[in-house]
């Protein structure tokens, strides 16, 4: 079964987010999502400085059999994107919650983060999806 860390927030579309100490939000895809996609071959992260809206497709992850949009859970400016994924997209597979992070956003409204699913709710959503 897939790993769903308790300290993160999630979207039903399988993104995770972590609120950092400096108030920014780091975003990636869940262990479940990377398993479903299979070996990633390409990640397209957004440009630093771009303003994204909550629910906006702003990155793409691509495997041999699928390409999937990544939605930002919060509105704000992209302050970093993971340059290591350019040469090593497999980091998303091997360490989805760590070295495989995709982007970091400075949220305009922290309530959007709080409104995300917690680990328990996401697990329930996963269970519902597979039945």
């Amino acid at each position: 079964m897939s790993n769903v860390p308790a300290d993160l927030r999630y979207l039903k579309s399988h993104e995770w987010a972590r609120l950092e100490g400096d108030g920014t939000v780091t975003i990636g895809i869940s262990d479940h999502a990377q398993q479903a996609l299979g070996d990633l071959v390409f990640v397209e992260a957004p440009e630093v400085g771009r303003r994204v809206s909550a629910g906006e497709a702003c990155a793409v992850v691509e495997s041999v059999k699928a390409a999937s949009d990544i939605y930002s859970p919060v509105t704000g400016e992209v302050i970093a994107s993971n340059v290591d994924l350019g040469g090593q997209p497999e980091l998303v597979n091997s360490d989805p919650y760590g070295a495989g992070w995709i982007m970091r956003v400075r949220p305009e409204d922290k309530a959007q983060f709080s409104a995300m699913l917690d680990a328990k709710a996401y697990q329930a959503a996963l269970a519902a999806e597979t039945h």
Binding site: V41, S63, V64, K65, A66, A67
Partner: peptide, 12 residues
């Protein structure tokens, strides 16, 4: 690079 194509990406 078939993930660009219609049979996978459909409307996108």
């Amino acid at each position: 690079l078939q993930a660009r194509e219609q049979h996978i990406r459909r409307s996108k």
